[in-house]
């Protein structure tokens, strides 16, 4: 089940159907007491049908806020604007009235969070929690919902599904809870699954199981996945296409093999070089000096310029988004001349 084999097929599907998610120039700000802070700016990407798109970035990159914006779960003081944010080519997620949005949430778009224990209701049996979206969205009878729930529990690899149906979250281990979260997210067979650091809180061996499970479910149900993570390893393992975010912007987007073979943006390069790898022994890791600028003090030019080894004078001007062909993009002056324009 190598993803290499899946890949060409995915591409064909992407070209045939409208993408599941199209985001263009997404901007998210938070209103404060007297000023508002923009934490995500000019973010554009698409998620094709059946595709796994990984958004990778460090803290402060805006990757999670982006996913919350798409899911519509931001706090009330958030302002979301976008020139385009379409779901399945039809629903405008920015202007969707909340009633219609609720009908999409949990049914067509669903989300898995980092910490399964806090995302589950401690006083409700896990079976009921899985059945809830079925009863709400698909108006199934109690009995039918239970049957589908047990089925869902089995599909996420939970042994003794009938017994687990009436278990409470605290009785389950971290890995089991995350499986439950995935079961809740997938029970209505959504078109898009947003997974926000789904394995960060888990042990290594459990992480591998959950990733394998998500790959399997993607193959069997054709659900597209938007995977938010800080871990390049998870990206390498899962993604078809990668969006690299830095300080609230997309700095690079490329197909996963291409990105790992030839990272373009200096930030992506630095990120890869600073990740320790078990295949090689190094005395010193490359490290990126300094830290991410805060939203209130964003530089006007390239946001990475202050930490970039290749910074030039022109970098104090707003960097261009350079198209590099085959869907790859980078936001860097270094590539300004290579622009294919095709």
């Amino acid at each position: 089940m190598t993803a290499t084999a899946d890949f060409p097929q995915q591409r064909i599907m992407t070209e045939k159907h409208p993408p599941v998610l199209e985001v263009e120039k997404l901007q998210i700000s938070f209103r404060g007491d007297d000023s508002s802070t923009t934490v995500v700016e000019d973010v554009s990407f698409t998620v094709g049908r059946g595709e796994v798109v990984g958004i990778v970035g460090e803290s402060g990159s805006g990757k999670s806020v982006t996913s919350y914006g798409i899911m519509g779960v931001l706090p009330p003081n958030a302002e979301v604007t976008a020139s385009k944010m379409f779901f399945a080519g039809a629903h405008d997620l920015v202007r969707l009235p909340s009633k219609k949005r609720r009908r999409l949430q949990g049914k067509e778009i669903s989300m898995v969070f980092q910490e399964p224990l806090t995302s589950l209701n401690p006083l409700m049996s896990v079976g009921k929690q899985i059945a809830e979206p079925l009863r709400y969205h698909e108006k199934l009878s109690r009995k039918e919902a239970k049957r589908r729930t047990v089925e869902a529990l089995r599909s996420v690899g939970i042994p003794r599904a009938e017994q687990t149906y009436s278990s409470y979250p605290h009785e389950l281990s971290g890995g089991m809870r995350q499986r439950i979260m995935i079961a809740i997210a997938l029970v209505c067979e959504p078109q898009l699954l947003i997974a926000d650091e789904p394995t960060t809180a888990l042990d290594v061996s459990v992480e591998a199981q959950i990733l394998r499970l998500m790959k399997k479910l993607r193959r069997t149900t054709g659900t597209s996945i938007l995977l938010i993570t800080h871990d390049l390893g998870v990206i390498a393992e899962m993604a078809d296409r990668v969006v690299v975010m830095y300080a609230g912007q997309v700095v690079e987007e490329a197909e996963v093999y291409e990105l790992f073979r030839e990272p373009r943006h200096p930030y992506t390069k630095a990120l890869m070089a600073s990740t320790p790898k078990i295949e090689e022994v190094r005395d010193e890791l490359e490290s990126i000096p300094g830290a991410v600028p805060t939203p209130s003090k964003m530089p006007t030019g390239c946001r990475f310029a202050a930490r970039c080894p290749k910074a030039m004078e022109i970098c104090s001007e707003r960097p261009p988004e350079v198209e590099l062909g085959s869907g790859a993009k980078t936001r860097c002056w270094l590539y300004a001349e290579q622009e294919t324009g095709s």
């Binding site: 490290s287 000096p289 300094g290 830290a291 600028p293 805060t294 209130s296 003090k297 202050a306």
Partner: peptide, 15 residues
């Protein structure tokens, strides 16, 4: 000292 104090700018913004 290869790296200078990180985030000097961030800290001063806060302060």
């Amino acid at each position: 000292m290869t790296q200078q104090p990180l985030m000097e700018n961030e800290t001063s913004t806060k302060a």
